[in-house]
Design a protein around this nucleic acid. Structure first.
Length: 848
DNA sequence: AGCACGCCGACT
DNA sequence: GTCGGCGTGCTC
């Protein structure tokens, strides 16, 4: 039930002085301003920065917003509407968070409402889920006579009676439903009156939705929890085999010495045992049944911990170096190659910071989060750790949020959005795999970079940051070299392990000699066979899911394309469909070519699914699994595959990027890489960096224990200079070359990039608007700093044509804030032209 | 973003 | 004559 569902009781008002107060409210709409609402007197003492409120917005809508600040100043030019309801007794959002939201909004050029949307788990933003109910004091099911009596007593209007009658029928309604059913324009006025009269209450659906997870538990009664007791219990079950079975099962799972430990009813009954017999046992007082509130995370009963991880002297030395750097630097880049034991070093750091009483946040890339590292950390830190992940249900995320807020959780492992959790006293943020592009949010605004945002957040908390990577981003490494960050390098693998050998196989030659078996070169295939003979496992990496990227006509080379986007359609074999990965469009596979009517339409290229299928034919004896977005839709899907591979129930694992992150398998010595060229020749200034990172990461999976790992890369251009560097695992040389190029062409870290994407249904309009916008920007920024407009690689998405403008701003040469304001003002000005009303400009600051 | 108001075509 | 198309403008 709502805390202050009615604000009628002026007699109880704590306020002695009737001050008129206003609240600046952050509202989940993409508008750049906050909105000012009047605070009802009754709530004067309760509305404060960081609480959620329900407010009317526009004529019909009722939204949940967050109070940014409270002022005494009345807004000018309009009269503020009243806050309808207060949802929180204490702020749910801290002052630091409000500050942080504002920073993100201004740096990434979006509205604070958009930031709020990304920051709050949906369980906390109940926009239109506030529901109405009759007040429990109001008698339900009253007859017409009584209504007439009450009508006088309560001074009820016609509409109010209609709403009451509706609620008697429907039990509960949302604001919208009430408005629709009664066909009223301003329901909230009526609702407000009825709440004041204590006839109707508003309650948060959330509080019903969000309930702790409970489970029925069974344990043996205390008086039977001894050797003698057990014997006695058995005498009482002599007549029932099923009851004996239950007792025996219980004892096998839960020895008596562990009393009062219990097991879940579900588990006890798991193997087809009789529920009615259990009932009898409970009735006879041998077992006890009770409800237990579970944490939603599965590690609640860790009795032993893996703690006191022992560090090698190299690792210990690195940890000490990190602490030394922290004396005068707030950020340290930990460049530790795969297999150097970064996790162990993190654990040591985390333990020390937690002991000092500060909070710790550890960021991991999206797909690494369900992996082994999390399991390990859970084992070590037990209940004090919260895991924040998009695959978790909303309840779980709300639980972590509240846990952080009330201090139960001091350590969070999470994806990029966990920078938004309500930390009060962060001591350390670790950004693992700091180079990973999944830290940057692409699509809905805020298009923020979690690593960069974490640095700002840490600064605000005066916390320290460790950026960890085996292949640091050029930006971070540059800053470390510039001594802005401390730099700690661990370039030795743990134990005996050495870095794997990298073998390049020339695809062109292979093709010429007709040695290709499907997509396998002879070299790779033979080595796979050898590995399997020696009972080793093999990882195959192909960064493309599905069966084939596209179809093509043998005769005229026609390729089916999406009708909404300028991309070829991907062939999905299982559904026998062509699908667009950008807009979701799908169509049946055409039987004849649309251009020449030939029937010779065949799949071209290959994805993980095809590799898997071919392998089943080429190596019928081997056990093959596939790991990509399609096989890991569910949370357990991922775990099952990893588990099977760990137990060596699978010999060959085919996968996309997913297999490259944070996995540690003992028996893998061979890794095969397909289609590497696509990343290498991707037209982007980061392609070299991406490629280097990818290959280093993939090769990190091979030979982690044995020290005889091998990576076989199939490529059309084995002579590409980057391969020479990668083969030597030589990050330094890569960096030295790359940084020169970045400097020459003024790319990050020497410049900041802002991308403006101009969109319109018509190509000409998009081009025209983008051209005009770039001309508006050029005079002040300098023509050399405004590049484009030009059509991006995919010119049309969802029936909108795009034009990209790239703005390069050299570091330390610009007042970034002012420049962004200028850019925004020019965009706003563009909109003033009536013909550009339907133009959309998407701003991406520091895009990656 | 939603949602309402408003001004033009194809329908009972 | 109305229903509804979506262009335009506003939301405290």
């Amino acid at each position: 039930m709502s805390l202050f569902s009615s604000f009628s009781d002026t007699s109880n008002s704590i306020s002695t002085e009737r001050k008129t107060l206003f609240a600046e409210v952050i509202i989940p709409v993409p508008l750049k301003t906050t909105f000012t609402y009047r605070i009802p007197f009754e709530l004067n003492d309760f509305v404060q920065s960081g609480v959620r409120v329900v407010i009317p917005f526009g004529r019909k809508r009722v939204l949940t917003g967050v109070v940014k600040s409270v002022t005494q100043e009345a807004p000018k030019g309009y009269s503020a509407k009243y806050i309808l309801e207060l949802l929180d007794e204490e702020p749910l959002i801290t002052q630091t968070q409000i500050w942080f939201w504002s920073w993100i909004a201004s740096y990434y050029m979006c509205s604070i409402g958009e930031v709020m949307n990304a920051a709050l788990p949906s369980g906390l933003k109940l926009s239109s889920t506030s529901r109405l109910q009759l007040h429990p004091d109001w008698k339900n099911g009253i007859n017409q006579e009584e209504i007439k009596e009450k009508q006088a007593e309560y001074d009820l209007s016609e509409d109010e009676i209609r709403l009451i009658n509706l609620l008697e029928l429907e039990n509960s309604l949302t604001y919208e439903q009430a408005g629709e059913k009664l066909d009223l324009q301003d329901v909230y006025q009526i609702i407000k009156k009825l709440t004041q009269k204590r006839i109707v209450i508003i309650f948060e659906e959330l509080k019903e939705k969000y309930s702790p997870l409970k489970e029925k538990q069974i344990r043996i009664a205390e008086k039977y929890a001894t050797q003698e007791g057990i014997a006695e219990a058995f005498t009482k079950t002599t007549r029932s085999v099923k009851q004996e079975e239950l007792l025996l099962t219980y004892l096998s799972k839960n020895p008596i010495k562990n009393y009062p430990k219990s097991i879940s009813k579900k588990e006890l009954l798991g193997e087809n045992l009789s529920a009615s017999s259990l009932k009898t046992l409970i009735k006879n007082g041998i077992f006890e049944e009770f409800e237990k509130t579970l944490s939603r995370f599965e590690f609640e009963e860790w009795t032993e911990t893996e703690s006191q991880i022992s560090l090698t002297s190299t690792q210990e030395n690195a940890v000490n170096q990190i602490f030394e750097h922290f004396q005068d630097k707030s950020t340290v880049l930990l460049h530790g190659i795969t297999g150097s034991g970064k996790t162990e070093m993190y654990v040591s750091l985390i333990e020390q910071v937690l002991q000092s009483g500060s909070q710790v946040l550890m960021l991991l890339p999206e797909i690494a989060l369900t992996s082994q590292i999390v399991v390990r950390l859970k084992r070590i830190f037990g209940n004090a750790v919260g895991v924040y992940h998009s695959r978790f249900s909303d309840n779980e995320r709300v639980e972590v949020w509240k846990g952080v807020l009330n201090g139960d959780i001091n350590f969070v492992i999470g994806v990029r959005s966990s920078v938004f959790l309500p930390f009060e006293h962060l001591g350390l943020i670790i950004v693992d795999e700091e180079h990973d592009p999944s830290y940057k949010q692409y699509d809905p605004a805020p298009r923020y970079h979690a690593r960069d945002a974490a640095l700002v957040l840490a600064h605000k908390h005066q916390a320290k940051v460790v950026l960890g990577s085996a292949t640091p981003s050029v930006e971070s490494y540059f800053l470390a070299k510039q001594k802005q960050y401390g730099l700690v390098e661990v370039l030795q693998r743990f134990g005996e392990a050495t870095l794997p050998e990298i073998q390049l196989v020339d695809l062109k030659k292979s093709k010429k000699r007709k040695e290709l078996k499907e997509n396998f070169t002879l070299e790779l295939f033979e080595q796979m066979k050898t590995a399997l003979e020696q009972h080793e496992q093999v990882l195959l990496f192909q960064n493309r899911r599905g069966y084939a990227p596209y179809l093509s006509c043998e005769v005229c080379e026609w390729i089916p394309e999406c009708q909404n986007c300028s991309v070829s359609l991907t062939y999905h074999q299982r559904a026998n469909e062509l699908r667009c990965h950008y807009c979701g469009f799908s169509t049946k596979v055409p039987q004849t070519c649309s251009a020449c009517s030939s029937t010779k339409i065949y799949p071209k290229g290959f994805g993980t699914q095809k590799l898997e299928e071919d392998l089943q034919v080429l190596l019928p004896e081997s056990r093959i699994a596939r790991m990509d977005k399609d096989t890991t839709r569910t949370r357990t899907g991922y775990e099952k595959i990893i588990d099977a591979f760990e137990k060596h129930e699978v010999d060959i694992l085919v996968g996309t990027q997913m297999i490259t992150k944070g996995l540690d398998f003992e028996k893998v010595n061979l890794v095969g890489v397909f289609d590497a060229d696509r990343i290498l020749f991707f037209p982007d200034f980061r392609s070299s960096e991406r490629f280097m990172q990818l290959i280093m990461q993939v090769s990190g999976r091979a030979g982690r224990r044995s020290g005889k790992g091998k990576v076989v890369i199939q490529t059309n251009s084995p002579s590409h200079p980057l391969f020479a560097i990668i083969s030597l695992h030589d990050y330094q040389t890569f960096y030295n070359q790359e940084i020169l190029e970045r400097q020459e062409y003024s790319y990050p870290p020497f410049a900041r990039l802002i991308k403006l994407m101009v969109r319109h249904e018509e190509r000409e309009m998009a081009q025209k608007a983008a051209f005009i916008l770039s001309k508006k920007l050029q005079p002040k920024l300098g023509a050399g700093r405004v590049l484009g407009p030009e059509a991006p690689i995919i010119e049309r998405i969802r029936n909108k044509f795009q034009q990209a403008i790239l703005i390069k701003l050299e570091r330390n040469k610009f007042d970034l804030g002012k420049t962004k304001e200028f850019i925004q003002s020019q965009i706003d000005e563009l909109y003033k032209d009536k013909s550009f009303k339907k133009i959309q400009v998407v701003v991406d600051v520091d895009f990656v």
